[in-house]
Design a protein around this nucleic acid. Structure first.
Lengths: 187, 187
DNA sequence: TCTTTGTTGAACACCGCTGTACGAGTTACT
DNA sequence: AGTAACTCGTACAGCGGTGTTCAACAAAGA
């Protein structure tokens, strides 16, 4: 029988993990336990290793983020819809940038990709609709276009972090750039 | 008096550092010393700390790379010139991707940017010429466009590393995408 | 109430890394 | 040939992290 008490702690730990790792990708297990208001040993009782903890945190961030993305209206003009989706995605990428770093050198290769399947699918569907309507280019693979968008956002986060970009400009720059990259080349 | 012997070792160490860190961003000082065919103590004799070593390796990579970039013909049609420059840059970014990672969490903030000044300037000049000729867009800051190019390349390297992108396609995808991002929006 | 499930801090072993010290040996330069 | 510069291996201290053990204690749930 799983005690309600324990369940609450598991939850608090996962929340704290998302929080800490979003601030410092190298946050230690001790830091996270303290932030969760829990002993380090208790934490190990629920998450056998640091990797399990990072995995849980990342999965939770994706899940929560995907829920937000689900509220975005993807109907109507594909270009406008894409702008909306990119804006919402950017918000998330920016928030969880540091957590992604942690995941990148903790989780086994492919795991991150696997967890991203939900959000990526949403983007892919929109992209393909736009292509079918002749609004988006078809001379590059969908997967490349998606990863490009991701990396432009990721890059913007870097620039903000380095103080070379004003956070208020980012959303506009990103959607403008991404739209241009998706536009079919003039013949 | 600096002995020729020592100078040769310093060189071998720097070379080995570039080499090792380009393969594994977390390569230890011991690894690098071994690769240089030198005792760990000898290494510390020339580079007081790991950070100094990473700095030297990164600076050398930039210097060597910038020399290659200097050979690229930047005259004529800006779009063609940019394609040539991006292709050459991509080669370098791809090769030193891992070294950049090492630099990122070893060197003080701003140091990487400072070392990139040479290459960035070359790109900036070309970009501005293209803008003056009406070939490149002017509704986004030059700095943003440059960083976008960098991040698209960086992202491509990631994709290759993850096995989701064929290295042979990369150059074409990148220059196509980058050119599209630089094209002035249709009115 | 009473048993099962959780929690706790302190202590410990372990790991790999960085950086230092030492003493003996080797090599370049004059 | 002689001196200063350099190199070597080994050994050590320190650090910060991970993961485990233990023994005492607290609380949920039937």
């Amino acid at each position: 029988m799983v005690r309600a008490d324990a369940q609450r702690n598991i939850n608090a730990i996962a929340t704290a993990a998302v929080d800490c790792l979003s601030r410092d990708p190298d946050a230690s297990v001790a830091d996270i336990a303290k932030a969760a208001g829990v002993g380090r040993v208790t934490l190990y009782g629920h998450f056998p290793s640091r990797a399990d903890l990072v995995d849980a945190a990342f999965a939770r961030a994706i899940e929560d983020g995907d829920a937000l993305l689900g509220a975005v209206d993807l109907d109507g003009d594909p270009r406008a819809a894409l702008t909306r989706l990119v804006d919402a995605s950017w918000e998330l990428v920016n928030r969880f940038r540091s957590l992604l770093l942690a995941a990148q050198h903790t989780l086994p290769p492919g795991r991150i990709q696997a967890l991203h399947e939900g959000p990526a699918d949403r983007m892919r569907r929109l992209l393909e609709r736009g292509r079918a309507e002749g609004v988006f280019r078809t001379d590059l693979p969908t997967s490349w276009l998606i990863s490009t968008m991701q990396h432009v956002m990721h890059g913007a986060a870097d620039e903000i972090n380095a103080g070379r970009l004003d956070a208020r400009d980012a959303a506009r720059y990103i959607s403008t750039t991404v739209l241009a990259a998706l536009t079919p080349p003039a013949v």
